[in-house]
Design a protein around this nucleic acid. Sequence first.
RNA 1: GGAGAGAUGGCCGAGUCGGCUGAAGGCGCUCGCCUGCUAAGCGAGUGUACACUCAAAAGUGUACCGAGGGUUCGAAUCCCUCUCUCUCCGCCA
Length: 424
Amino acid sequence: MLDSKFIRDNIDLVKEKLSARGSDVDLAPFIAIDARRREVLQEIEALRAERNRASEEIAALKKERKEVDPARFKEMKEVSGKIKAIEEGLKEIEQETENFLLTIPNMPHESVPFGRSEEDNAEVRKWGEKPAFSFTPLEHFELGERLGILDFERAAKIAGARFSLYKGAGAQLERALINFMLDLHTREHNYTEVLPPFMVNRTTMTGTGQLPKFEEDLFKIDGADYFLIPTAEVPVTNIHQKEILNQEDLPIFYTAYTPCFRSEAGSYGKDTRGLIRQHQFNKVELVKFVEPEESYAELEGLLANAEEVLKRLGLHYRVVNLCTGDVSFAAAKTYDLEVWLPGPGVYREISSCSNYEDFQARRAGIRYRKKDAKKAAFVHTLNGSGLAVGRTLVAVLESYQQEDGSVVVPEALRPYMGGLEVIS
RNA sequence: GGAGAGAUGGCCGAGUCGGCUGAAGGCGCUCGCCUGCUAAGCGAGUGUACACUCAAAAGUGUACCGAGGGUUCGAAUCCCUCUCUCUCCGCCA
């Protein structure tokens, strides 16, 4: 959420920043209603002040056991009626401003390249090499089905399309990846592991920006106001919802493994086979709460933490700086990590690392108190996948496949696989 | 699922028959004084948001005692609804 005062004072800048991301919001109605809001507020506050004064007067008279003129009561009853009437209008106006603000996306940071679509994203760097094969590499679902470690047909029978069933070494490999990632981030990168609820309420979904705009992408529990989380970012960022943290508590780093649930209506027809696009997938998430001055340095750190997973697994990847037209609703800046998939021969997003600045903090009410500042300030929140587990498994299968269809287990994972070296 | 109790400031805790209660008292914390050091003691301060005045510093007003609504000239205090916490019973991995 943007600061309404900031919008008021910087209309042209806000307009420019939003149009850079392809959002041509008309700010004029907001400016008008915001002005009206303050006008009504002043009116109502003056009346309330009058009521408070009268109240004190009456209290003083009663204390001295003096008579109160009945006309006074009548007069104040009218004032109260007026207040109530204006209050209703004010509530509507406030609701309207709130609704507007909640649907305005974040402004991209100055280091975000201008662009219209993902075509315009800027490659930052590449790491490693595309693995060379003396044969035509297979896609992961072929490998997985042949090895008997992935079973999409039965997954469809149990649940439907876009669900997966891992078996044997496949299930074990998924679990190994989760543990490997969590251990790396907790032991070497200073994150605190958390295991949050996989369902959250509406307020929490609004805090990180999934609601009110993207309800159709979420799975909602029927008969209760719970949603399945689309990412651990949601419950974990909201850990400190409506809190004022101490400066010395920052920065706070959390990592969490959770399954993620995404409805993503409209995605049908894309990536229909395999693990790439699922209604349920596993992810290890990294979340940071930091002071504003530190947030861009912390974004680089977060990105490096996610990259480290790929490096240790020996998977070739590239880092992409998303352009203004491709950064998501709540983010000010996003780096995507794209892993190389030898099967289809493409780079595939495997992590998305973003700085939200104070956009989520303002929505969720996450503040901190600076040592000698009188006012509490909003923290900056960041998060990134560290990594999407299913897609990592895809990359491992495809990158480490051998001509006979077996798959070599990357060394970093062997301790988590009971020493297993090859899946065959 | 059933029965009961409760929700007040960073924490503990008081709020009488509704009336200067943003909220007593204590603890904690900050600054100052005092003091070989520490402790004790003394003094002052110590929530958030919004609006207005304003260059700023600051000041003024309004709101907030779990959330929302109602009664009333006036609600932390009375009434209703909801949420959460605790205790007991039932069920249960």
